[in-house]
Design a binder for these strands. Structure first.
Lengths: 260, 260
DNA sequence: CCGCTTAAACGTGCATAATCGTGCATCATC
DNA sequence: GATGATGCACGATTATGCACGTTTAAGCGG
């Protein structure tokens, strides 16, 4: 079935298997590909030399998220927003359709989406589409329209109109301000307009908010806070900052901790 | 069955096979086409030099969107493509509406658009929208739809449909192959389909082609060459490479020189 | 807990065959 | 006669498998 693979093809096969199963047993793979163990071990050593896997006795393991790829990806990025994003992606389930709104935090959400999941991602932010371009198991749908350089996303009437054709299971909403009384708010009219339409078609809405945004309000209202299914906050958020939302029955995820 | 293929035809065949099977084994193809392995390997090397495939020990593989699509291709021959782009932007006039198709060369066209001009730019490539985000006097309209990581642009039926609402004064068309007889061609069906629709609504079409692309044809036809208003070629292009197009009445712009 | 045994996994060196790159000759085409 | 495609010859590089001795992990009896 797998015979006569070119060297590099074998390498990608190994990487795929590492991503899906988390580990490789040299002897098993050698039997499966009808090659000598030596060859497989040479492959694993080569991949390990490039940091694409970790060589262990008997085979190889996927680079552990803690030490390897994730820290590398996180390195150049504001640590706090990355922590939010990593907590937020825990809400995504395999096979679902999610909408990722524009914004720097949400771009990190896209980056930290689990490699192994099959997803359909809809977004109005070109940067997010490009970010996800390398993921083979993610279908990317980009909403068009007038591009707003300030927010880095498409906001025009066309984008709003296209929303009507969607029904995402989960929406990561970008918010400029978040307050239990004032609701979710944005800086510009067009921005709020688009996000309002987005909220109407979404099955579940999540906002990831850094502590500065909690309790603040921008000029234009998107929706009331009670429409949110969950809010992702920083691990350091004070109790009085999040209490108003728990009172509304909104689930709170603290970054840097497992879910309650 | 396949004997007596011309060089360019063989390249097309290889590209088709790369698209459908994902890989080429040099020895197998040599036997099938009754050619020496040397010739096949020369072909693969040539295609790889253009970033159209990845040469590996024993054959070649399709470019993976992950590494190839835009980052690497833009970096591969920057000066040559940049020269093309700088010549191409000379065709743009102030106040007009232009369409910039996806592709590494066209991204450079966007970059070199004159700062002073007021323009409305329509594109299906997210990277181009972002590239132009910092220009305050350019209106950017992004076509949405399914995002194809391989070309770095939106190709789905939605994008084609949105084309109907446009009528750009000038279109920079991205081409995978350009031949006076075969016309403008693309690698994939969807790509060609979108570009075909684009050509129908455009008032004037321009293609910027590096010398390797001149005289080559990819599997899927977009339009005949006579539909082009102008072709931008490298300053080093030979006369016999461009003569067929001047015969068709197409304006030729040589990069690195002012217009004739 | 400790040392011993054993089989599996490992690294290294080497042989072999496939593949590669280069230089050169040939042939067709213009 | 110049250009470019093709095939061939040569040495260089690479992938693979096998043999060897070494290291590791795990079980076992004390």
């Amino acid at each position: 079935m797998y015979e006569d693979l070119l060297l590099k093809e074998r390498w990608t096969l190994i990487q795929e298997r590492l991503n899906s199963e988390g580990r490789i047993i040299a002897a098993d793979l050698a039997r499966e590909l009808e090659l000598s163990e030596d060859t497989i071990r040479r492959d694993l050593r080569g991949l390990a030399a490039q940091g694409l896997c970790v060589k262990v006795y008997g085979g190889a393991l996927k680079v552990s998220p803690a030490s390897g790829s994730l820290t590398e990806r996180t390195a150049s990025v504001p640590h706090r927003k990355a922590a939010l994003a990593q907590a937020a992606v825990g809400l995504v389930s395999d096979g679902s359709t999610i909408f990722i709104d524009g914004g720097s935090t949400n771009q990190l959400v896209a980056r930290f989406l689990p490699e192994a999941m099959n997803l359909r991602v809809v977004t109005n932010a070109p940067a997010i589409a490009i970010e996800l371009g390398s993921r083979t198991n993610i279908d990317i749908i980009l909403l068009g329209g007038r591009f707003d350089p300030h927010t880095g996303s498409c906001l025009g009437s066309r984008a709003v109109h296209e929303l009507g054709l969607l029904r995402p299971d989960l929406t990561f909403l970008g918010a400029c301000g978040l307050d239990a009384a004032a609701g979710v708010t944005a800086f510009s009219f067009d921005e709020a307009d688009f996000k309002r339409g987005l909220c109407q078609v979404s099955r579940a809405i999540v906002v990831a908010a850094t502590s500065e945004k909690l309790g603040t309000a921008a000029p234009f209202v998107i929706t009331q806070a009670s429409a949110l299914a969950a809010i992702v906050v920083e691990g350091s958020a004070r109790h009085d900052q999040i209490a108003p939302y728990t009172d509304l029955g909104i689930r709170i995820l603290r970054a840097g901790k497992d879910q309650p």
